[in-house]
């Protein structure tokens, strides 16, 4: 009853918590040319686990900002302007906080839940796997 496949359809969160599910969803997003949204989502989780005393953490925050937020990529397009400004200012002031990407991650997650996740569950790649 609680097979991986049953979990995948339960929620996006359960899909992304399962290794095979996450990789299959990533393959789907690569095909749809919006894999950046998923990589950003995982980067936010990875960032949250980093040690704030480590000098690498500020660098990683800057890299995430440059890669996904500053430019006009799909992640940036799906974020609210205020959210992007908040992150930009935090980095400028070097005020790094574990939760600084939380709002952005939530916004991206909501879009994924409403669009890509629903499309994935009816996609060939998913049905073939099933």
């Amino acid at each position: 009853p609680d097979s991986p496949l049953a979990r995948w359809t339960k929620s996006l969160h359960s899909l992304l918590g399962d290794q095979d599910g996450a990789y299959l969803f990533r393959t789907f997003l690569e095909r749809e040319e919006c894999v950046d949204t998923l990589d950003f989502w995982f980067a936010c989780n990875g960032f949250r686990q980093m040690n704030l005393k480590d000098t690498k953490t500020l660098r990683v925050a800057k890299v995430i900002y440059k890669r996904y937020i500053e430019n006009n990529c799909i992640v940036s397009k799906q974020l609210k302007p205020a959210t992007k400004t908040y992150i930009r200012d935090s980095i400028k002031k070097q005020q790094i906080d574990s939760t600084m990407f939380d709002q952005a991650q939530t916004e991206i997650q909501t879009v994924m839940e409403e669009n890509a996740y629903q499309m994935f569950l009816t996609s060939d790649i998913y049905l073939e796997y099933v």
Binding site: Q19, G21, A43, N45, Q49, M50, V63
Partner: peptide, 20 residues
């Protein structure tokens, strides 16, 4: 080697689910 891309990939990789 600690390029920006390496750092980012390591950050993403650290959050990917491990095999259950």
């Amino acid at each position: 080697l600690n390029s920006d891309e390496d750092l980012l990939q390591r950050c993403i990789g650290s959050a990917m689910p491990k095999r259950q």
